[in-house]
Design a binder for these strands. Structure first.
Lengths: 190, 190
DNA sequence: CCTGTGATGACACTTGGTGCCGTCAAGCTA
DNA sequence: TAGCTTGACGGCACCAAGTGTCATCACAGG
């Protein structure tokens, strides 16, 4: 038998989100989270650099998925088509079974400026990864940055629709929908 | 004669930036900043909610300038034209005499993730203000969000060029230049 | 059986940030 | 002149985030 219960990281995440939902983000101390998870404060900060970071665990792999999907798109694909393919590729991370959990996390994040700030950092990394991947395909600036910005907006909009209370549609579907709406809107700007 | 030296807030900002440049952001404590400014820690947190916030003092009025300039644009102006006018309107806040100071601040901010995170929050507020002002003009979503996103990118690019070491051109000029480059790039995305 | 390794506990410590109260110049009013 | 209020700051105690450091002990490999 193991000296400690397994899945310490996952236990911390669950304990944190449940505590945050019950009593609010800044009413919960790290010590209380770790107590709930049967661990200590020091262990929490071995798994997460921050108190906030516990709510964004695994978010970093999204950048990798996006970058790989953009790189894997056919050479003939336009920047927008490459981004559309990348949005499709993230369906693995946004399966229907994850939606309820995503709603919980989103509820906590939406309620606190500190957390929305961290969310912005994650999205900025996502956009940077997309822009890098596009430049790797030979898309010049500022087109690469612009496409990444539009992709980020499509991602954000799609995610919002995906976690919306009544929604049952897949993430890829609503995200691609948001993307094509944005592409159409580019005609009405000038 | 006054009981205390005037301009406490400004003294704090100057003391902070100079200290950060000399020894790095996280090697400097708030107590050291306030000591340098001849004040106390408590007073620092009366003027700034955060240690980071001291580097972004006055940034919030930018949102107001943008919103007012967009609202003041002629009814016939397209979203992009309204944003171009807003970029021009910020020249007051980005005069040539502020450039050297902006370079110092930018040097500090660029070197620390915590500070770039706060910068992202400020830019997000800017984009939100722009999108709101555009919607107020009757621009529907997602065109308003998209235009705000492009405006934010133009602002960021323009600012980067404005503070670039060799640059001597005005902020409005380089920002409008960045904006028109982005508008041209929209044609190459589809 | 021995030894290294990796994950955790335990504890002290620094620092950001807040609550609360005291102090005193300036300004207003009578 | 006297009295009162207001605003800005000092001082102090306190909490919680985050870090450095060492000890502990199951487990894997030889």
């Amino acid at each position: 038998m193991s000296r400690w219960e397994p899945n310490a990281r996952e236990r911390l995440v669950r304990a944190a989100v449940e505590s945050f939902l019950e009593r609010g983000y800044d009413e919960v101390t790290v010590a209380e989270i770790t107590e709930r998870a049967g661990l200590t404060k020091r262990t929490f900060f071995r798994h997460f650099t921050d108190k906030r970071e516990v709510l964004f665990a695994g978010q970093d792999i999204l950048s990798r998925i996006f970058a790989e999907a953009i790189a894997a798109a056919p050479t003939s694909a336009t920047p927008i088509e490459a981004i559309s393919a990348a949005l499709t590729a993230t369906e693995t991370a946004f399966g229907p079974d994850h939606r309820e959990w995503a709603r919980k996390v989103q509820t906590v994040v939406a309620g606190h400026t500190d957390l929305r700030e961290r969310e912005l950092l994650k999205k900025a990394k996502l956009r940077a990864a997309m822009a890098d991947a596009l430049r790797e395909r030979g898309v010049p600036d500022p087109a690469a940055s612009l496409a990444a910005e539009i992709g980020g907006l499509a991602f954000t909009t799609g995610f919002a629709r995906w976690v919306a209370p009544a929604n049952e549609r897949d993430f890829g579907e609503v995200a691609r929908e948001a993307l094509s709406e944005l592409v159409e809107a580019t005609a009405k700007l000038g």
